[in-house]
Amino acid sequence: MRRLYSHFGDRLFAFFLLLLALGVVALALLMAYELYRGGSLALGRFGLLGFALGREWDPVVQKAFGAWPYILGTFIVSFSALFLSFFPALAAAIFAAEYAPRWLAQIINFLLDLMAAVPSVVYGLWGIFVLAPWLRDKVQLPLYMWAAEHLPGLLPLLGVPTGYGLMTAVLILASMIVPYTAALARDAIALVPKEHREAAYALGATRWEVMRLAILPLARGGIIAGAFLALARAVGETMAVTMVIGNSHKLPYTLFGGAATMPSVIANEFTEAVEDLHLSALIAVGFLLFLVSMLVNSTAAYVLRRQERLVKGVL
């Protein structure tokens, strides 16, 4: 083997490959370090835990910074979006992979890929001008009026029906992450060996039973990994969310009322963060976001690797 790599050209090529690959690793580490260093002023002042759990974010009067409203907002928005989008996305993937005739499956797959390629600012724009006004007039106001008459206890949960808030952000985000879940679920289903489908069919299984017996158990890991990647995307999504979420960090959050997420507060406030502590607090939020994204992504990678082993063990 050694001899294969002994030509000068090969060695040069291998050297550059190594350099570039190490560069990627170094970049990730450097980014984590820079975020930590940039946020160290705020983190040092409030402590990591105090910063993460602090409920007060007041750059003007108290000069206190606690990221809890943004962490909470991020979790509510991204998990709700994942929950809303998961089953439609899975259904689309199953339909495209197993039920649809080939021409229709190709159209569905093309559109799913297209959905992933639409810039998020376009989703945001659509949210501002179409979805938010529509939700306000057709959903939130009627619901609010109905609750005011029949169930006033519900009002504090609903909040002010402005159209720009938690609900709109969740709906926009859910439609944005559908293609991620769907694409990975589709690939996982396609990875299931033909023999296993046929074995189930040969037992006298119907299409749905083939799905349940042979396909879903083997594709489960890939489907879950897809959900995690979609979650990672939802956690980090900035532009569309910032445009429609109403940007209010006043707790408690309500269904219709404004909210804020980690990315949205960074995007909103970095231009006006003239004081060192404020800027440092924003960077510290970025550091927390980095940690959360890393956690979600590595979980997805772990699940995906186990899935591949399971399928390969079968072959």
Binding site: E198, A199, A214, P217, L218, R220, G313, V314
Partner: peptide, 21 residues
């Protein structure tokens, strides 16, 4: 065809036990 396959069973070249069951 589902009813046909219940009367006419099939065994394949590669063992196809459902691995998660």
């Amino acid at each position: 065809p589902v009813l046909v396959r219940r009367r006419v069973g099939m065994v394949f070249q590669k063992p196809t036990a459902f691995p998660t069951m």
